[in-house]
Design a protein around this nucleic acid. Structure first.
Lengths: 204, 204
DNA sequence: GCATATTTTCGACCGACGGTCAAGTATTTT
DNA sequence: AAAATACTTGACCGTCGGTCGAAAATATGC
């Protein structure tokens, strides 16, 4: 049985992201943690960036796969409700207190490089799923957008952007107002009924 | 007459950003271009990041200052119109074909670090101006937002984010639809009359 | 099973970069 | 004019991403 070196590298990188400060995530550290030589890392990946990006992408893909396996196929859940669950799973992925959660850690430290990768990956991996849900919502009659692709893009971008709390005021009232505004923005994008996204700011 | 070393460093950095590939913007290059020793650069700035950030911030501040000097004080222009002109000046700053334009260059190359700095600076420098314009629009009766601060934040964030074209589809129809959607989003944020932001996608 | 070709592994090494520092020089203060 | 302070400098440092040639492992052909 051949050990999959790529998998070793993924695992090592994920662990480092979870436990170490960003500056400790060096290619040497990844190689050491994976128990292989540095040269081998570069045998499987062209660059460090490629590793990080692959790890982030993998994480989003995992979330999407889980969504399709566990939520999407359940016919009793409406499209809007599924969208809510999808958002929750992403928000939870980003901000859960679970220390093991990678994307959470990634989003918390200030490195803009990784941050950007997360944003790009979010758009590319999540937006198509939202688009799919929009077609279903349109079929159900709860969504009336004429441009599902663009709406999905804008929605995911807006949500992702605002999940990045680092650059905004943390004042609770400001944050509440901001989320109210964003839920209205979502309604506008989807042409959905007023209140469809109240769950974004109504804590429970 | 004492030459202002800080100004020399700013100038050199701006020139490098305008003319060179990102990887050529090193502290050594800045020092060389400014005609001073590398140590002197670190006498005036704590880090390279601090230099880049200061340059970007300066650029936005300059745009804001120009806005207040040339546009804002003219009483015959409505708040919504002023907002349009402000957006135009920023868009132009980001995307003009003028090769001398720094922010343009900065936004074009892929470095996410600088990209992020630009976004943060945009929020911090431009959002307060938009907020100010919102109060004026409210006084004029064209804007009915109850939460001007949050609306300004969201508007600037959305616009800035989508000015970053790099991560989105370049298909003209998709781009048009996206901008239409964004203009609707802006109306929603400001509670302004329908069509107030049509100029965002109606080329002229 | 042996020889040959191919794939995989490795860490010493490289060049570049951001940042430091001791040693100076200019300027101000007393 | 002496002492103190502010400024300037480039050689030097540690670190990091990435390279490379050679060795080890594995596959292929006969």
């Amino acid at each position: 049985m051949k050990t999959d070196k790529k998998e070793l590298i993924f695992k090592a990188t994920e662990e480092l992201i979870s436990e170490a400060a960003y500056n400790d995530i060096t290619v040497d550290a990844i190689a050491k943690k994976a128990g292989i030589g540095k040269g081998s890392v570069y045998y499987y990946f062209k660059s460090k960036d490629e590793i990080i990006y692959a790890v982030v992408e993998r994480s989003y893909r995992r979330a999407v796969r889980d969504f399709f396996e566990n939520i999407h196929k359940r016919p009793e859940i409406s499209a809007l409700e599924k969208m809510k669950l999808l958002f929750y799973s992403i928000i939870k992925q980003d901000y859960s207190n679970n220390e093991k959660n990678m994307l959470h850690k990634l989003n918390l430290h200030e490195d803009p490089d990784i941050h950007h990768k997360i944003n790009v990956a979010a758009i590319q991996e999540i937006a198509p799923v939202v688009e799919q849900l929009m077609y279903e919502g349109i079929a159900e009659g709860t969504i009336h957008s004429q441009t599902p692709k663009e709406s999905a893009e804008v929605i995911v971008a807006v949500l992702t952007y605002f999940l990045d709390r680092s650059m905004y005021s943390e004042d609770p009232q400001v944050m509440l107002n901001r989320m109210k505004l964003i839920s209205e923005v979502m309604e506008t994008c989807l042409k959905a009924e007023k209140g469809s996204f109240d769950y974004l700011y109504k804590l429970n």
